[in-house]
Design a protein around this nucleic acid. Structure first.
Lengths: 234, 234
DNA sequence: TGTATTTTTTTTGTCGACACAAATTTTCAC
DNA sequence: GTGAAAATTTGTGTCGACAAAAAAAATACA
């Protein structure tokens, strides 16, 4: 189906098989190219990527560990569902991780961290400027991931990345159907966060991250509410 | 080597193979039966557990996802090292998770949650009373895991469990070499936490969790410091 | 005797095949 | 025609084997 998925049959380096499958599947899941609930047929996937089932299975185990797929015993593994009923737990966790990682970045960042963060921010600003919703989602993730790296706590970083990915799925869901105008405000907020981090102003970084998270959560909430009304109207 | 590892050659249900390997390895890693840095030979392990390499590898992938083993490309996977230089990131994260899960438990717990928590606390108190250091480590984990469940946020829960496991390795390291007297204080602190949760006193639960975490962190720090002096003395 | 190079060994990554479990279809009884 | 039981199909879980990489051993050469 997807173009990038049916590439070069057999000219890959040994040892990169699992990684390749993992990347392909991960991208397709996060981009909603594979809808939540879709069963993943190992044989079919093996044929599509022209490799054996063994590396496919190992990639699936990895994805299951990150919660992106669910494995039903003796039955097919399916793309993880989005649990709308418990979204508040997601909002709660991602807000806390926004705050904690930004705080720690203000505390622990080193010189070259800011270079990376600014580069990501430039990419983000570009995506917003071009009204590229999908690009904005991706670059926003990388921006905050760079901040998390600067915070130098791998435990927070891994949870945060997981949450950002989950959020990417959510946003992708709504941006694809509504084509919103992209909020320029986020660019400014990002700039403020960078400034606070650079100044090592922990409390300000925290407060800004908190506001930023609230903004995003609120936006997602609005999208869901709007979507809900529509569904009821039909 | 280990007794429990070389059991019943081939009378296991289909589909439980990976789970079995995962459990065996996990226990051995957390109990330090497999020392950090030990290479894991797939063939040898396959013979020991009398099964093919395939389920072994899948279990290893899972363990790698949880950070309990490290996979070197095209080379053996080794038991994850304990990063003493960055222990502060561990202390920081586990303290936050102690607080967050206990807060949420006070907020969201339901009736039967308290039953489970009290049961775990009883087991913990028994282990402390019997001066069973290893039992105390294990039951303490289950006690806090039960609180995390009552908090009803799977994101926090999974990170917390990972951190508690990492802590189990750390504690195991020192209890095996020093045979400390077990602090009765923890039992009382646990009781206070249960009371705060039951009363739905979020702030008090938070404060108690914070103190509890500080206690544990401080104890680990002392152990490490003591260990350090010994090393230098030699 | 020490070092560079080749050969051997060890161990991983991948493959194709088979066995078993669940879902699906078909058959059969009533 | 309807429902239960049997047969078939579909797809996972596991296996043994092979090929490629890295490490270890052996050899050549100074």
């Amino acid at each position: 189906m997807s173009e990038s998925a049916t590439r070069k049959p057999a000219e890959r380096k040994r040892g990169s098989g699992v990684q390749f499958v993992y990347n392909v599947l991960r991208d397709e899941i996060l981009d909603l190219a594979l809808a939540p609930g879709t069963p993943i047929d190992e044989i079919q996937l093996a044929q599509r990527l022209s490799m054996s089932r063994t590396p496919i299975r190992e990639a699936l185990v990895r994805l299951a560990g990150e919660g992106l797929v669910t494995t039903l015993p003796n039955r097919s593994t399916v793309v993880a569902n989005i649990d709308f009923l418990n979204l508040h737990t997601f909002f709660d966790a991602i807000t806390l991780m926004y705050r904690v990682t930004t705080r720690l970045a203000a505390l622990n960042h080193q010189a070259d961290d800011l270079v990376t963060i600014r580069a990501r921010q430039a990419e983000f600003a570009k995506a917003v400027d071009e009204q590229d919703a999908l690009g904005m989602i991706a670059t926003n993730r990388e921006f905050h991931a760079a901040i998390a790296v600067a915070g130098r706590n791998p435990y927070y970083e891994s949870l945060f990345l997981r949450l950002l990915d989950e959020g990417r799925r959510l946003l992708r869901l709504y941006y694809s159907s509504f084509n919103d105008q992209l909020p320029q405000r986020y660019v400014v907020e990002h700039e403020d966060m960078i400034a606070a981090i650079e100044a090592r102003d922990v409390e300000k970084a925290d407060a800004l991250a908190n506001e930023h998270a609230d903004q995003i959560v609120e936006q997602i909430r609005n999208m869901i509410a709007r979507d809900h009304r529509q569904k009821i109207a039909l």
